[in-house]
Structure formats: structure tokens, C-alpha cells
Amino acid sequence: MEEKEQLETHEKERRDFLSCLGSVLVCGATAVAASAVSPQATAATPGVTPGSQPPAIPGYDWTEHRWAFGVDATKCIGCLRCVEACKKENDVPLDAHHFRTWVERYVTLEGEDTARIDSQADPVNIEASGSEVEYRFADRYKDAKVEKAFFVPKLCNQCTHPACVQVCPTGATYKTKDGVVLIDHTYCIGCQYCVQACPYGARYFDERRNVTDKCTWCYHRITKGLQPACVEVCPTGARIFGDRNDKQSPISQFIRDNQVQVLRRETGNAPNVFYVGIDKEVI
């Protein structure tokens, strides 16, 4: 009888121990999982969470939007207000080596087969402006016979199949449901594999914070119903932004009414910046 009681006590102790162990494991796993997926409070862009979690923005449902960007190169005058606005809006380092957006100038001279290309970051243009934080295209072709010339604004293409997201070893950079590629700066390890993988040169390493950065189409603005800063300041309407889910949005009309093309289609990245008015020289 005594033996039986002893056995029961042992059995109970064992059950208690296992149940306690189970609780510890569950709590531990939950804590690890929570720390792994929810650095929400410190996410890079306010209100943006990584992975499949919706952004914590009141009244914003990321499943209801499909953002896209259009560039009408025939309207761009190379004033570079977009570059300036972007730098200010997004705290981009004020030098000639870090850009979320930039503008390229393509000039074909008479008798030449290929275009000469430069951007506002070209040393000649910096010299003309007198500073790395003043953006200007120098009048460098004034004595030449120009056959064709045009400007092409560039920015992150927020690809449907982004190579940068594919190669990120931690998942710090990710594709949102509304079509933008974001970076969780609190999770990025700064390996720069994504910088290498982007065929468009859209990413840069921010040495101040030791993480990579790039254009987000001003995600903090568009999720509040505002336009990206570069679109807002463009004086000619060369930059178009909107929701493709809305058939009447400027971008839906732009894509519908024009024969648009994308950059480096052969990469298979499926970019979401649609261009009008560029020619074969554009890279």
C-alpha cells in the first residue's frame, strides 16, 4: 500500500515536472518567435513591420493598394528638384555618392553612335554647381552639335521579383503586400549583398547607421495619402504615382494611355517603375 502511494507520488512529480518543462519550452519558443518576427516598435520606416505582418498604420490596409510609379521622360527638364526633395525628406547623406533617386542625361552628338551619359553626381556637374549638395547639370555640350538629348529620372523599381529581397540573408529587406520593397534597419546586418544584387544600382550603404538604404516611394507619406516627395515637387509632372487598384488613378491612366516600358526587363525582376519616352540607350 505504502509502495503504491510512493509510486503515485513519483508519477505526480513526474507529471508536474513535464508540465512545467512544457510551459518553459512554450514560453521560450514564443519569446524567440516574437523576437524574431516583431521588431515593430523599432522598425525603420515608422509603422512598417517586416515579413507578412501588416503595417501598424491606423486606417491603412496594405492589401487594398497596389502602388506603381511612372516616369514620363519627355517631360523631365533635369531641374533636379526631385533629387533635392528626396535627400531632405528621407535624410539621405548629403554627398555625391548616396542617392535614393537621381537623374541621368543622355546626349547623342552628331556623328556619334552612342549617347554620352552623366548624372548630377558627375564631377563636371558637381564642379559646375560648386557643391555636392547643390544639384545641377552643367552646360557641357553648349559648343557641340547635339543630335538628341533627354533626361531619365531613376529610382528603386520596387520589383515584383526583387533580387535584393532574394539575396538578403536575414529577411531584413522584404516586399510589402502593397508592392513596395522596404528595409528593416533594426534587423539589417549590413552585409551589402543586396547592394550587389540590385541591377539598377538603386541601393547604397549608409555609413552613418551601417545599414543599407534605398527609395521606398516615401512609404511614410503614401500610406497617409500623400504623394512621394519627388512626385510632389516635380514642376512638369514627369513623375507619376498612384494605386493600380484604382482604375482612375494617375498611374493607372498613365499605364493605360501610353506604351510603357521597364528597365532591364531581361533580369526577370519585373520592375514597377514604368517609363515613357526613353530609347534604346537607357541603361
Binding site: A36, C168, T170, A172, C188, I189
Partner: peptide, 14 residues
């Protein structure tokens, strides 16, 4: 850039 976060690649390998 952030060696102290290197284990992120092991905790949540993408």
C-alpha cells in the same frame, strides 16, 4: 555593418 546582428541570419535564415 552590424556584426553584433550576425546571428540574425541563423535565428531567422532567409
Amino acid at each position: 555593418g552590424h556584426p553584433e546582428r550576425a546571428f540574425n541570419a541563423m535565428i531567422t535564415p532567409h
